[in-house]
Design a protein around this nucleic acid. Structure first.
Length: 558
RNA sequence: GCGCCCGUAGCUCAGCCGGAUAGAGCGCCGGGCUUCGAACCCGUAGGCCGCAGGUUCGAAUCCUGCCGGGCGCGCCA
């Protein structure tokens, strides 16, 4: 609809220029927006305000000229008014809105989607938890955001690959093994030392138990046993992580293993490439990359003087490999505590001749957990945290996914677990799901009355005249462009707000019928009932599609 | 010290590519079920949009400085 209005405005301006009503000038950037006040019409533009300065005339005058000369051949407007400082307000004819209802109910679950001829291949890496412990709430937030962005991108016609990067080449896997081994030894000898920076969670003891029933640790040298514990511990943690993500309805397409970068020689190869580009140098026995030439604060070490590679070295190699796999765009979702890595990563990409827009990093602020009114500081090393699994057991997948997306990703999220547990019916997700279930219920009622949606929809739709009805349609019209905006900004939380808004307007509409039976959806007036069923069906479709994109169920009964 | 994020109703947060009277949920107070689902709806109260400047016809929104909270600044992982 905005496109249609914009088209009309541009044609109108052209005409005004030709007729000399306005001076020829480059088009300023103007907005066509949905006013928050219903008296201001369905759409409004500030075009005349933005033209005031180049035209050197009063905005109000310009608005009048534009309004009087509108090139609306298809006549989509019911009224056009100038108002305020120089806004032009448009009210769209009901027929246009009715047409949209037909579109929604015919496209059904494809409403809002796009089929593109050539799909853009996008890689999204998220969660990427170290396999040294179970997933916690922060990972849940990342999973909810990443998976939802993937669902939306793919719905909007892009090819998406979900990727999980397994950090398994560093010291932490070794420490995991030492922790497990120590817990096993402590069963017989409580005095056996526990590693200083070991992992304290109870799951370590469980791992020790499991592994020791599978292999005979007592027959091995400690070094060999620790190695086994590392390997088996990592495998078991990965299996558990994968399982928990599955419960959370997040499936990854690619599990990329850091240690493979070394065993396949990819790290060495990428170093040679950078060497050839003359981006590396040796200093103090270490190998450095000149990231400071590309925007970083300082140069970074890739190979330490002891010969070990830094994480940064394998991270670069990993991203180069990703780039080599032909993605036109890569998105990384990181915890906000890694924000300091963005400049160096972007610099390293530039140093390798990769466009700086290729990689986008989305930061998610950390999740603060509150229990019994107190904040619980989470720490994997100290073994104190609430796992994603526990949360899912308490509140369910639907509520968890929805709640994680009720805040902007760059805002900290205070998660009061008692609140979500106790007041689970106050959860906004139920509010939205209830609207869906309610429509389904209405359709059962209609069926019982022998009323159904006719094949010739346009014959009954002109009975839809209530403001509440038009306002619902108007909101549903925004759905596709909202999805597009989310694709560009990654603000997935806007979808949860949108659905809550749509549900609210539907509940409000439904309640009109409680006061006045003429306003019920299923009434004695058959054509009117049929038209309202079409409207209710469209609401059901958009809510279901939206919930689907959030990875949340749309139940027919609750 | 430097960098990034945040500061909006009692609480948790939307709104922030400048626009018309600043919103929601929860909480408080008061209403609404003989007929489509009350997991709902309606109403009341509650705001120096952290502070101070600046840009603009117009600032919660953009710029600068300050205050407060979080995070990050290793040849750690």
């Amino acid at each position: 609809m905005k496109e249609k209005i914009d088209d009309i405005l541009q044609k109108t301006l052209k005409k005004c220029f030709e007729k000399g009503l306005l001076k020829e000038c480059p088009l300023p950037t103007y907005l066509i927006e949905i006013p928050n006040n219903n008296d201001h019409g369905h759409f409004a533009t500030n075009l005349a305000l933005t033209l005031a300065s180049p035209q050197r005339r009063r905005p109000r005058e310009i608005a009048e000229i534009i309004a009087d000369n509108l090139e609306d051949k298809g006549s989509i407007f019911e009224t056009v008014e100038t108002a305020g400082a120089g806004f032009i307000n448009f009210r769209i004819r009901p027929e246009e809105w009715h047409r949209l209802l037909i579109e929604i109910t015919e496209k059904r679950d494809r409403y809002g989607s796009i089929d593109r001829g050539t799909k853009e291949k996008i890689n999204i890496e998220f969660v990427s938890a170290n396999p040294t412990g179970p997933l916690h709430l922060g990972h849940g937030r990342g999973a909810a955001l990443g998976d939802t962005i993937c669902r939306i991108l793919s719905f909007r016609g892009h090819e998406v690959v979900r990727e999980f990067y397994i950090n398994d080449a560093g010291l932490q896997i070794r420490i995991l093994g030492e922790s497990i081994y120590s817990r096993w030894m402590q069963k017989k000898n409580p005095a056996y030392p526990f590693p200083d920076n070991g992992y304290h969670g109870d799951y370590i003891t469980d791992l020790a138990e499991d592994i020791s029933t599978e292999v005979d640790l007592s027959s091995m040298e400690p070094e060999k046993a620790i190695e086994i514990c590392s390997k088996k511990g990592k495998e078991r943690m990965l299996a558990e992580i994968n399982n928990d993500l599955g419960l959370f309805r997040t499936q990854f397409d690619v599990w990329f293993t850091e240690s493979d970068l070394f065993s396949n020689g990819l790290v060495e190869r990428s170093l040679k490439e950078m060497e050839a580009r003359k981006e590396l140098y040796e200093k103090d026995g270490a190998l450095w990359i000149k990231t400071s030439d590309f925007g970083d604060d300082k140069d970074r070490v890739l190979r330490k003087s002891d010969g070990q590679f830094t994480y940064f070295a394998s991270d670069i190699s990993y991203h180069l490999d990703k780039h080599g796999r032909g993605f036109s765009k890569a998105i990384d979702i990181w915890g906000a505590d890694h924000h300091g890595y963005i400049p160096r990563m972007q610099s390293a990409m530039k140093a390798n001749g990769i466009d700086e827009n290729w990689l986008s990093v989305i930061l998610i602020q950390l999740v603060k957990l509150f229990k019994e009114g107190r904040e619980i500081k989470m720490s994997k090393r100290a073994g104190q945290y609430v796992t994603l699994r526990e949360l899912l057991d308490e509140v369910g997948v639907d509520a968890a996914r929805f709640i994680f997306l009720t805040k902007a990703h760059d805002s900290q999220l205070d998660f009061d677990i008692d609140l979500v547990k106790k007041h689970d019916t106050d959860n906004p997700v139920y509010y939205v799901q209830y609207a869906h279930a309610r429509v389904c219920s209405i359709f059962k009622k209609a069926e019982a009355e022998g009323i159904s949606i006719p094949s010739e929809k346009d014959l009954v739709l002109d009975t839809l005249t209530l403001d509440e009805e038009i306002s619902l349609i108007r909101l549903m019209e925004e759905f596709p462009s909202l999805l597009d905006e989310i694709c560009a900004s990654f603000d997935a939380h806007r979808l949860t707000y949108y659905l809550a808004d749509l549900a609210a307007r539907f509940h409000k509409y439904f309640n009109l019928g409680l006061k006045n039976s003429e306003n019920r959806i299923v009434t004695a007036d058959i054509p009117l009932s049929q038209a309202r069923l079409i409207l209710a069906d469209a609401v059901r479709i958009v809510i279901k599609t939206g919930l689907n994109l959030l990875g949340v169920n749309a139940p027919e009964r609750m």
